[in-house]
Design a protein around this nucleic acid. Structure first.
Length: 435
RNA sequence: GCGCCCAUCGUCUAUCGGACAGGACACUAGGUUUUCAUCCUAGUAAGCGGGGUUCGACUCCCCGUGGGCGCGCCA
């Protein structure tokens, strides 16, 4: 029997990070087993399930490279089928109709639990059992005639011939109900595996308040999809050795559910960022430029930039770009109206004597070839003249020329900027910031 | 409240009874005879507590503690 798994999002426009990790584990499992990864769109909430919302979900999957097999199943088109199954259960004597709780809203259809202890073996948690007294009958069709989650869920899983259900931890208790439903229908239940949840620093479910929570947020913040995928795959799962940065293929080969941890894991944006930096550092320059330009779309100085000059800047900055969004700080390479950061200015420029040193530097830099070695010599000479230690002046010069405290190699940055801009900014800084 | 699940450095994790509990992020200290968000080196840091089982326990069992999840005509 070949493996068939599914990802079943509700198209509400956003895909939560916990849900996408579930998708990743399902996908990895399917690819590892040589099976199918299917998509089911749970669009029964007609108000929220707009075409745009569905497209957002599809975009998120596509962005992360999570491809699916076969045509998606739309749950909204299957209500008749769901109800037919409920009717069959009533006829079999496995379900009954009743005005539950005496609401006066009319009868709903209730599934009758078999009244025996339930047990199943979870692919990640092991054998789980529940006593009959803790298993209550539950509604499968509401009094307004609409099927509930439980009914729709198993009906569609049967229709899609799903063999393994890998889903969030919060569904463990439901599994006893679902298995009972399968058995009442005379269908062999699929295997279940429940994934622990992703929590925040407080141990609570990871949410929007903890920073980025939806796939789109990570894209907007400048994360590379492969890095997010890799990081999420390792949250709760490990290949068993010390590998962390892995290719898709390596993850597929190593992925098994018995290596999934059963306790919750805390999301660490700092570590994700580090992993992202590794992906960025090793990609080709062309790819890097394309991604960065995507982030910079709509930014005037970037749009108007000279191609080959932009390329040089990107080359210089790639290894220090942890997130694509860092590129928004490259403005000083392209335009003179960049912002000077307050702290570095206070620390590097607003000190006695710095202004004069910068002015002296202008004179020194006017007469030499504008190359790193020559620039270095001039700066050293200036340092000796000012009686400061070698390298001491670099920070002030950097702030004067770029407005930032950090960046690529100072001399390389100056060469790229060119003599004209450098001298102009040195003078500007001396005049405007230094005492 | 009842039921189920979980428990290794601050965080993500390795270890599936047997040598100094390993790696990564973060942090700290050096180095790269220039900054630095890159790179290199080193260091700090963990088995929740109590009982067992065993020659031997992080690993198995029990109790406690802590945390998570569930207990809807929500999904």
């Amino acid at each position: 029997m070949s493996v068939r798994v599914r990802f079943a999002p509700s198209p509400t426009g956003n895909v939560h990070i916990g849900n996408i990790r579930t998708a990743i584990f399902n996908w990895l499992f399917a690819r590892h087993e040589g099976g199918k990864f299917l998509l089911r769109v749970e669009d029964t909430d007609r108000d929220r399930s707009t075409p745009e919302a569905l497209q957002a979900v599809l975009d998120a999957l596509n962005w992360l490279g999570i491809n699916y097999d076969e045509e998606p199943l739309y749950q909204s088109g299957r209500i008749e089928a769901h109800l037919a199954i409920a009717e069959k259960l009533v006829q079999n004597g496995h379900a009954y109709k009743e005005d539950k709780g005496g609401t006066g809203k009319g009868d709903c259809t209730i599934f009758k639990m078999p009244g025996k202890d339930a047990v199943y073996t979870d692919l990640v948690k092991g054998e789980l059992r529940k006593e009959a007294k803790d298993l209550k009958d539950f509604v499968i069709v509401r009094s307004d005639g609409t099927p509930t989650f439980h009914l729709a869920n198993i009906a569609d899983d049967i229709e899609m011939r799903i063999t393994h259900i890998i889903r969030g931890d919060d569904h463990v208790e439901n599994t006893f109900k679902h298995v009972a439903l399968y058995e009442a229908l005379g269908v062999t239940p699929p295997k279940y595996g429940h994934l622990p949840m992703i929590v925040n620093a407080q141990g609570k479910p990871y949410s929007k308040r903890d920073g980025a929570a939806f796939v789109g947020d990570f894209k907007a913040k400048g994360f590379h999809p492969d890095a997010l995928f890799n990081y999420l795959a390792l949250l709760g799962w490990s290949p068993g050795d010390d590998r962390e940065k892995m290719t898709r293929q390596e993850m597929i080969e190593a992925f098994t559910l018995d290596r999934v941890k059963s306790g919750p894991s805390q999301m660490d944006l700092v570590k994700l960022t580090h992993m992202n930096a590794e992906y960025v550092a090793e990609m080709t320059l062309d790819d890097f430029i394309a991604r960065v330009k995507d982030v910079l779309a709509g930014t005037e100085w970037a749009l108007n930039a000279d191609e080959s000059y932009f390329r040089k800047v990107a080359e210089l900055m790639q290894s220090r770009t942890h997130l694509y969004s860092y590129a928004s700080g490259w403005k000083y390479f392209f335009a003179d109206d960049f912002d000077y950061e307050e702290k570095p200015v206070n620390k590097g420029l607003k000190k006695d004597g710095v202004g004069q040193v910068l002015i002296n530097l202008v004179a020194g830099l006017e007469g030499v070839d504008f190359l790193t070695a020559e620039i270095e010599k001039v700066i050293h000479t200036a340092e000796v003249a000012a009686g400061v230690k070698q390298g001491k002046l670099n920070f002030s010069i950097r702030v004067a020329v770029t407005g930032c405290a950090t960046g690529a190699g100072l001399y390389e940055t100056m060469v790229l900027l060119g003599r004209e801009k450098v001298l102009k900014r040195l003078k500007y800084a001396a005049d405007n910031f230094c005492g």
